[in-house]
Amino acid sequence: MTLAYIGVGSNLEREKHIQAAYQELHKIGSVRASCVYECQPIGFDSHAFYNMVFELVTELSLVELQRRLKEIELRWGRAANAQKFQDRTLDLDILLFGDAVSSSDPIVPRHDIFTYEFVAKPLLELCPDYIIPSDGRSIRQVWQSLESKGTLTLVAFTFNTKNHD
């Protein structure tokens, strides 16, 4: 079993797609959710995103988990040729995968941890003392090193826990 952290983002039918991510990840393993945050898009003008992180305990390998996440994204309407700075129905990124360090796709630890509040803040909720492989700092230390821009708004969101098996 591996403890993984999955970053989730959506700015199209946000509630529907965040809930879908929860339901789909329950099929892969045991899930625990951070709070959901609203944040303006970075790098392009569009609708605000909902962002969060799921803690996932899974038996899948890193490569198999990546494959399954891509399948989920496509099933929920993400374009196969989606670019970095555009609208998303569902974006699922492996942020951390146990103590794995990978410099090829999927890259873990994912650099977004050190860059974006919408990634670091939910991780801080779930695993503040987690030591990031190859970095040596805890999530709390990374959060403290980020220059807070106050771009996150907490969203009142309750997951429907029925029908996830």
Rank of each mutant, 00 (worst) to 15 (best):
R78E: 06
M1A: 15
R140T: 12
R32N: 14
F85K: 08
R68C: 12
E24F: 05
G29M: 11
A20D: 02
L56C: 04
C127G: 03
Y50K: 04
S138C: 10
H17L: 09
A33F: 02
A20E: 01
L62C: 10
R140K: 14
V36Q: 02
L152A: 08
G150W: 06
G150C: 12
K16R: 15
D91V: 02
C39N: 15
E147T: 09
G98V: 10
P109Q: 00
E38M: 10
E71T: 11
E117G: 05
G43E: 05
F118I: 05
G77W: 04
C39T: 14
D112I: 10
R32I: 15
P109E: 00
G77T: 05
T153H: 10
T115Q: 15
Y130M: 11
E13M: 13
P41C: 06
N51D: 03
D99F: 05
E64P: 02
D135M: 06
E55T: 06
R75S: 15
I42A: 11
Q19V: 05
Y116C: 02
T161V: 12
F114K: 13
L146V: 06
R110K: 05
L90Y: 02
S138Y: 05
N81F: 11
S134N: 12
F49A: 05
F159P: 07
F97G: 07
L96M: 10
M1H: 14
E125H: 07
D93C: 06
A156N: 15
E147K: 12
K27T: 14
V142R: 05
T161G: 10
W143D: 14
S46Y: 00
R78C: 03
I72K: 02
L74H: 13
L65R: 12
G136Q: 09
E64R: 12
Y130N: 02
N11F: 00
D165M: 09
Y130E: 10
A48I: 07
F157P: 01
L74D: 07
S138W: 07
G29W: 09
D93K: 07
R140Q: 13
I42C: 08
G150E: 11
I6S: 08
F157H: 01
M1F: 14
E38Q: 15
Q40G: 11
S145Y: 01
T161Q: 13
R137S: 10
L90E: 03
Q141E: 15
C127I: 08
L56G: 01
S30R: 12
R68M: 12
T153M: 13
L90P: 03
E15V: 13
S103K: 02
F85G: 01
R14D: 09
V8P: 01
L95F: 06
I107A: 00
S145F: 01
S34N: 04
V155P: 03
T58W: 03
Q19W: 01
D129C: 11
L152M: 05
S148H: 13
H17M: 07
I107N: 01
P106A: 08
I113P: 00
L124W: 07
K27Q: 15
Q141M: 11
L126R: 08
L90T: 01
R32C: 14
D93F: 07
P128A: 04
E117I: 03
E24Y: 04
C127W: 02
V31K: 02
D45P: 01
I6Q: 09
Q66R: 08
Y130R: 13
I72T: 04
L95P: 02
H17G: 07
V155M: 04
K162S: 15
V142M: 09
I131L: 10
